[in-house]
Design a protein around this nucleic acid. Sequence first.
DNA 1: TGTTAGCACTCTTTGTCCCCGAGTGCTAAT
DNA 2: ATTAGCACTCGGGGACAAAGAGTGCTAACA
Lengths: 350, 350
Amino acid sequence: MLTEVITVLTDRQLLIFQVIVDDFIQTAQPVGSRTLSKKEKISFSSATIRNEMADLEELGFIEKTHTSSGRIPSEKGYRYYVDHLLSPQKLNQHDIHKVQSIFAERIYELEKIVQKSAKILSELTNYTSIVLGPAVRDNKLKRIQIVPLNKETAIAIIITDTGHVENRMFHLPENIDAGDLEKVVNILNDRLAGAPLESLNNKLYKEVAVLLRHHINNYDLMLNSIADTIKIPAYDKLFFGGKTNMLSQPEFHDIEKVKNLMNMIEQEKGIYDLLSKNKSGINIKIGRENNNSAMENCSLITASYSIGTEQLGTIAILGPTRMEYSRVISLLNYISADLSAVLSKLYQNR
Amino acid sequence: MLTEVITVLTDRQLLIFQVIVDDFIQTAQPVGSRTLSKKEKISFSSATIRNEMADLEELGFIEKTHTSSGRIPSEKGYRYYVDHLLSPQKLNQHDIHKVQSIFAERIYELEKIVQKSAKILSELTNYTSIVLGPAVRDNKLKRIQIVPLNKETAIAIIITDTGHVENRMFHLPENIDAGDLEKVVNILNDRLAGAPLESLNNKLYKEVAVLLRHHINNYDLMLNSIADTIKIPAYDKLFFGGKTNMLSQPEFHDIEKVKNLMNMIEQEKGIYDLLSKNKSGINIKIGRENNNSAMENCSLITASYSIGTEQLGTIAILGPTRMEYSRVISLLNYISADLSAVLSKLYQNR
DNA sequence: TGTTAGCACTCTTTGTCCCCGAGTGCTAAT
DNA sequence: ATTAGCACTCGGGGACAAAGAGTGCTAACA
């Protein structure tokens, strides 16, 4: 495919195309031949440009909004731009400074760092940022605690090796006393500590059930309560920054579009689907490539952050298809590397 | 003030005013004399109505959008309508059914119930619902746990008598061993269990500090970490339902207004201010009564929920000033009563 | 004296026409 | 191969008119 495209596009077409995309990304206005001919980089007449543009349109890289309008990049055009024409951009001092500020304070909680990353990222880009929090799925159990609140209810608390805490209330079987409960907790910790959360449910029924039976009555009801508590959250947590930034983009002057997009963002399920199926490194999905009608005029750029080779979560920018791809990619690369570094340091010896 | 108004408005003016408000709430269109004269309840001619409307306008209850338009209620008008003309509306079977569904499953977690209430409320009204979660400020400490994650960090967990769990990571002093940590935890629980969260900080430094000194070295660093962990969250948690519902209201076809409102909602601080300064029972703030520029065209109706006489939190509806006050008030009353009942039952013996 | 029919007036909305500007495609000249 | 030139297209904005909804006021009526 790459060779095919290269044989088809001349250098001049490439140049014109690039200038069109760059200009449109900046101004959000269709770009005409006269505007182009005035650019510094371009030394030929508007008529020549018109000819070239007609060819570029025929190839599907640019479109008109109406018969006699200037051109705008098509989705295929953006795809080509992103794949072949993107020159990595250096971050300026101000950007670097702001990113560093995420890690300035000594913070121990992963969630706080992640939340702050989302905030900074949206402030720097004026787009919406989304961070998929660290997966707890393959965390290992550090400790289970059960704290009775009164005769009927107790609260179960799970702590993982990364310091993630989950808790849930449950109903206590009747006639269970503090001693019984302590026994249960001891058994649970003996048997389950160190095991990945994923395997807990299985182990609980296969290994722990037998032991519990020997020590307490009504163990089955109790067991179910605990199993329910232990269940891993279906989705990892999402963090957002600049949810309303999209409202400032000219392509979202139409309330209907805003409603669609906002609804998807609020429901989180859709966002989760968009984010979770990405490979490591930078991923770019343009417009309909996202397979989501609410994303019609949007692009999503994702990057993963990790500890060593273990992918922890995803950090993403949601913007209009007319997005500053180069800048956003640089930023994501930079932040995800920093994030990975800091987290690795924090959890090297977990 | 009440007497003043009663002497000024005739029965007929009252009737006309009420019909204007009711009609405008339904249609969002200015109401003219011809439209009014056709209403069943109204038996006099459009000319008479025009005269009365001129008086009502002079009194400040209604306004024109331009010289020859129909009338819409003014903020003062809504205030009068809400204070004097509201007839409590009975909920229909469908509404009651949906509200009941909040409590259908046996749920133990307060947060889940509250979250679900917000969701149902927004679905029933098509406005935005906001629930200020139960205040943890005056919860009492049930238990403190400290779980070391590795040599350097540990996680402190606080459980309150209502089952609320807070946790925070902190840095361990060097050379502290498991035995020391256990001693610390025992001292903390001995001294602090049962105390209101508010008083913990004080007690920690006044009573516990002395004890810690006898048992472990480096107690001061440890103490600060714990104090930091114990700190009560500045704001109680907010839950939302139907954040995007406002986008469907005709008064929010203007992107600028949407942006203002959404920004305020996202920042939470503003919302918190709006909600927290309300008395128990139903409160209604109309438009500029909210003292918040983003709320220009919005009204906020709040209700409190409680256990016994102790006010726990606030449940609210944010809608356009042109809101179905009667219906919303009935719903809020109904839900807040149910919520109070269920929570009282759940925490009667905490 | 309170009510109402009637009328002149106002203002918004909608549609039409027209013109301007920006841009295109094509042709012919360079 | 490039470009100047020209006819053509389309969207946007202003001017204008007509329609519709509503008002205020006056004069007549019960």
